[in-house]
Design a protein around this nucleic acid. Structure first.
Lengths: 159, 159
DNA sequence: CCATTATATTTTATGTCTAAACTATTTAAA
DNA sequence: TTTAAATAGTTTAGACATAAAATATAATGG
């Protein structure tokens, strides 16, 4: 993840509003990502994709299929296979058979996985709150609304 | 690049404004990234990091050191080595010696690199404009301003 | 029912990315 | 100026990511 970063500060031509927006979006999420990745590694010896996958499972007590994880995390299926392998090896999740479809697994957090994720989620949120602490709540709400519209638009666009 | 995607649509608790903002930021940039990556592969048989690196060089006619590329692209030095290797093999850039520092290179676009980047940049911008076409210019400007403040804040925060 | 097509997952090959260890040169300081 | 510390770049090992091909099961349409 990355793209044309750094031009960001120097584009001023008014014709390039969209391009500038994309670069800024990318720079911001990249900056946050770097911090979160480092914190996850330092405090929990884990990675962002693993944390993300566990976050998905935490909200799906009945388990999720590999394909559903792939769709939600916006990554390809092959990628999910690898991350699930590792988390399973670590005893944090399990592949259980899907009673409704013998091709599929239902991936679930183990008890240990739930416990550990709980700890990580609390810290994770505090890092994020800290990173955004300089931005007034009102502005955060406004940004959130705009990005929500953008996300909706992009999802429509892409279909 | 990715994180906790998908929770995004379901967080409503007002205490989690910052967390929600981070997820939304990430989802949006990820959605755009996927499109741009696919388009670059389909139209130019290239990748986003390579395009980004060339974009950096295009604005630096005197060339950039590896370390400067690393800082601007927000990735590690080792990563730059690999991308530069490939682009150099393809004849699109060259490592030239830095007269001021024998440890360093100045990396520059070749004539062919400049030509190709020119073509790619035009298409690239049109893809971006298309992706944002559903968002009114006024809102794009507002988003741009907010993200600019956020970026500034993050950069300060991180130092 | 059976062939076809679609879906769920894994595998393979390749590229991106990091952290940490390494080499070479420069800078600073004693 | 010689040593020590810092800086520029590369290498290594391992994780993450993709697209495309392969396997297995499910769903569909004659």
């Amino acid at each position: 993840m990355s793209a044309v970063l750094g031009l960001d500060s120097r584009l001023t031509d008014d014709h390039h509003e969209s391009l500038r927006l994309w670069l800024r979006l990318l720079t911001c999420s990249h900056l946050i990502e770097i911090q979160v990745r480092k914190a996850l590694a330092a405090k929990f010896k884990t990675t962002l994709p693993r944390f993300d996958l566990m976050a998905q499972l935490e909200r799906a007590p009945h388990g999720l299929q590999m394909g559903e994880l792939s769709r939600r995390m916006l990554v390809t299926g092959g990628n999910i296979t690898g991350i699930v392998d590792q988390l399973e090896r670590a005893g944090l999740i399990v592949r259980t058979e899907d009673p409704a479809d013998r091709r599929a697994y239902l991936v679930k957090l183990t008890k240990e996985g739930r416990r550990l994720f709980g700890q990580m989620a609390i810290e994770h949120e505090s890092w994020i709150v800290q990173l955004f602490s300089g931005i007034p709540k009102r502005e955060q709400r406004a940004l959130n609304e705009s990005l929500s519209r953008l996300r909706a638009q992009l999802t429509r666009e892409i279909k």
